[in-house]
Design a binder for these strands. Structure first.
Lengths: 333, 333
DNA sequence: GTGAAAGCGCTAACAG
DNA sequence: CTGTTAGCGCTTTCAC
């Protein structure tokens, strides 16, 4: 390994000088700088990040904590986070919590010993467990974490978008497949969704019944039994549209509908949330509420680096109408 | 930050002793050990990994280089790798190469400055650029990288499995949607696939024509024009089955077939490769060659840690027959 | 503007 | 068995 001393010796200067040119410090005469740079090139010197981190009591590492990197939405997020971080000369270490608050705690403790530049956390559970990161800069992504700045899509608004879309399409019997209630994301999406119905009923559309709620996880697996029962109801009682709280649920739901001979979108309108890459390839293509993933990733890293800022960023989602949502057909009502 | 000195002082021992109990070194009397452990607990001491890494000239970090963490197969792999690594007290930093050999080179150079325990590389491109990792332990995953040990599925065997399945189903006009030829994975899968046809023809099944090859990328996007032309051929010339070199291609293909009114599997059998989580939820469910992802991840980490070993591990894939593959119907031949 | 030197937190000789 | 100490590679005073 070639160290700063080797470079210094080779260039005939002191280590201090080398350090100064390497760390872009300006107080170096141009001739010395040239000599040092030549030596660096010749020797192929690369500053040792570990040593630098120790000295600075801070490493060039962003610690990214996700529930599950294999979740397409999170992996998408991780991709963009790493890409942006890389632009800033930062590396990303990833840890999975598997949705378990306890392992989240452990992961944070472990990663803290790396003295990372900061934590980017997609929290595993509910809020309460909010402050394991000590005085290391922390930004929550997607869901709040303690009182750290939050960068996320406006889930509530997204829920409203979905509801408005379905109502606009003429649907009146609607069900909502919710996510785990302890997750604020799931909660907010649902609340947003329901809020539109509340308002509509107050504004003289009393024919809009309250959406039927079905509890679900947040992954492909869903409460097949309850859903099946719902899908098998007589046509005039069955919901004409089901909104889900993420795309995986929607995909799982379409699969289930198919298994029971319910045709999407003819017999049932489905709408997802997230707009994972696959959503535009399903059969039929999934209508969904798209999160601005790339913008979220960018904003998250920038917020992390702007250590002064205490502001959250809530970005607006947008409806992507594709093929799974249709004007309700007369024969269904 | 509480350091080893604080613990030493608190426990009334020397830093050396503390270090010895922390690093599980045995030569410590039980009473001192107890005192130290008490102090550690009381102070909430956590050894600073950065300092330890500097001292040992090696960090507890696995550098994972992937083309694209958002690729479902790779994110699956990453999940399991991180999980296994975590069992060994190792952290994982991820870097994306976006399939570009040049950025791969840069990422490796950058990550090297972390003096990681080792590199786990899913190489971006072809073999030649094989040795950027210097003397840091390196294990290739999924595809060979230089002459480092390789842990991967047997892609060739997987290709054979797919071919055998289609032939066994009675298909005779078959097409193969290949991946980028410079990727050994793609190459091997294709070669394996074709080898079965060669053998069959030599063993007296001359009615098996050589599969038509269609070049493709490795992602959802495919050569729509060529494929469309193929799908629109008259029924007696059109292939009755198309094998793809990964699940994303297969999903894209099903989408395209649907767009042109070709029904899978009635009019066309499709088979994928990888068995990403989503494959069992597509409509219809995708028949595919499953890679033992978890075993690969485990083996990869273990190989990395067994610094002596120079052995590669080639694990066997297995056919998952689901709904997209069918005995060829008479009217198609 | 530059060099010398202290020291970040830790481990591993080495001496006792 | 335990304490002392040098030093990993780097940055940053502090003198000059």
């Amino acid at each position: 390994m070639v160290t700063i001393r080797d470079v210094a010796k080779h260039a005939g200067v002191s280590v201090g000088t080398v350090s100064r040119v390497v760390s872009k410090n300006l107080t170096v005469s141009s001739k010395m700088r040239a000599a040092v740079e030549a030596a660096i090139l010749e020797l192929g010197y690369k500053p040792n990040l570990i040593a630098r981190s120790l000295r600075n009591a801070k490493s060039n590492i962003i610690a990214l904590i996700v529930p599950d990197i294999a979740n397409p939405h999170f992996s998408q997020l991780a991709l963009h986070i790493e890409t942006v971080a890389s632009r800033f000369g930062l590396m990303v270490v990833v840890a999975n919590t598997h949705g378990d608050v306890e392992v989240e705690r452990k992961q944070i403790a472990t990663l803290s010993t790396l003295t990372p530049t900061g934590f980017l956390i997609i929290p595993a559970g509910s809020n309460p467990t909010g402050n394991q990161t000590g005085n290391i800069r922390t930004v929550a992504v997607d869901r709040p974490y303690g009182d750290h700045p939050l960068v996320s899509a406006d889930h509530y608004a997204g829920g409203r978008l979905a509801a408005a879309h379905l109502i606009g399409l003429g649907h009146r019997r609607i069900a909502y497949l919710s996510g785990p209630e302890e997750l604020s994301v799931a909660h907010n999406r649902k609340e947003g969704f329901l809020s539109v119905f509340d308002e509509a009923r107050q504004n003289g559309k009393p024919d809009l019944s309250v959406p039927e709620l079905i509890a679900g996880g947040f992954d492909y697996a869903l409460d097949a039994e309850t859903l099946t029962k719902l899908l098998l109801k007589p046509i005039c009682q069955r919901p004409t549209a089901i909104a889900t709280s993420n795309d995986q649920q929607a995909i799982g739901l379409m699969r289930l509908a198919r298994d029971h001979g319910v045709s999407v979108p003819r017999d049932l309108t489905v709408i997802g949330f997230d707009d994972v890459p696959l959503a535009s390839l399903t059969i039929p293509r999934l209508t969904t509420i798209a999160q601005p993933v790339q913008a979220i990733a960018e904003r998250a890293v920038i917020t992390l680096l702007d250590t002064e800022s205490t502001n959250s960023s809530i970005l607006q989602p947008v409806l992507k109408q594709r093929e799974t949502s249709l004007t309700v057909s007369g024969w269904l009502v």
